[in-house]
Design a protein around this nucleic acid. Structure first.
Lengths: 207, 207
DNA sequence: TGACCTATATAGTGAACGCTACATATCGCG
DNA sequence: CGCGATATGTAGCGTTCACTATATAGGTCA
């Protein structure tokens, strides 16, 4: 008993509470989920809630971080620097559409939709996470296609937000995927033309 | 009479009130605008508000109808049946981006963003108007490019929603326009290829 | 055991929400 | 001028919001 000086009694599983909150926030959005909704879903009372999480906004941040870790797109793999953009960007769009439309209840991107929260603190949290994703795309494009980086990054941002919003508004999975395929094909065509124009340019042999 | 403790002003301009509400709802969204915000902006008291408009949701509907009449994109002209889609669809995207990003305060599409209202009645109103726009695009494409109508209509819907969401989240006007130009060029390229493929094919001349 | 400590439930807090009962002020009309 | 109809201001309705003061139940240690 020397090692454990004092054991915290886990009267209720706090991580499980974060998971419950994550689902509720993803399903309905930050503002539409009330304290009463959360405490009822967790089967606890408000004082336990505040002892465990501090505030609704703080729990939202934990829920979004959990979402980012468990559900966010693997940008590191999708946007590996040795991957040509004509392959990476369509793959990213497909992966996004697949995730946004997969679960009929948890539609869209929790972070992207969190940008619309009325609460400033919650919105700021979402903005920080969303900026991370956008900057990852931008950093990748700065390496592989610096001339078109800004335009392509903005096009990706707009398309991803449109996919998330459309998913939230009920566009079926198959049609979301079809739009992602279409946008990906557009990008691939555009990049193919650019490559043809600059024929003898940097030839990065792909493994 | 000690003093006229209560003064009453002449009747206020109800249409002007709708215009004020339209601006507030567009700027902040339905849920983020409270009755206190509305009555303060109109310089009236709640009973006058309810005598004039019935409810917050009813005023939102009037404000969105006003928006649709005054600010909505001229789909009839942009999507005239005799206009080729390779010209009409990019023009629609450009017009949308132009409108969504023009006013730094009234960003995005009021109807599209109204789809996110928590209040069911307000959301239903927005959905009815939004469906009208989508169906106009779909009806145009059914005429001019029936084979690709569904996919192109969905692509347009996703891109328009992405443009509106990105505008609301602060993407600058010039970058919105650049994304719209890019997406429009993608569509034009795609449709040009389709036309080349079916050059000598069955030319079912529609009158 | 019994002091100690933490997490819990009871039962609220004040503020803001959309909305309204009521009395009073203004207007059109004779 | 007076009367009815109407619209407005004062004041407050009931509800819900995020959040908390207080006391107790239950586990951990001496």
């Amino acid at each position: 008993m020397n090692a454990k000086t004092r054991q915290r009694r886990p009267a209720f599983d706090r991580e499980a509470g974060v998971a419950i909150a994550q689902a509720l926030f993803h399903e309905r959005g930050y503002d539409a989920v009330s304290l009463a909704d959360l405490t009822e879903a967790m089967n606890i009372k408000p004082p336990s809630f505040y002892a465990a999480y501090g505030s609704k906004a703080a729990l939202f941040e934990r829920a979004m971080l959990r979402y980012a870790q468990e559900n966010a797109l693997p940008l590191d793999e999708l946007l590996a620097p040795d991957r040509p953009p004509a392959q990476a960007l369509p793959a990213l769009l497909l992966a996004a559409a697949e995730q946004y439309g997969r679960d009929s209840l948890l539609r869209g991107c929790m972070i992207t939709e969190g940008l619309r929260a009325d609460d400033p603190a919650a919105r700021q949290t979402a903005e920080n996470l969303a900026n991370g994703g956008i900057q990852a795309i931008r950093a990748y494009l700065d390496q592989v296609s610096p001339q078109e980086a800004q335009t392509l990054a903005d096009y990706m941002a707009v398309t991803l937000r449109g996919l998330s919003a459309s998913a939230c508004n009920g566009m079926p999975y198959e049609r979301l995927m079809q739009v992602a395929r279409t946008a990906g094909r557009f990008i691939a065509h555009e990049l193919a033309e650019k490559t043809e124009e600059s024929t003898a340019a940097s030839i990065s042999s792909d493994p």
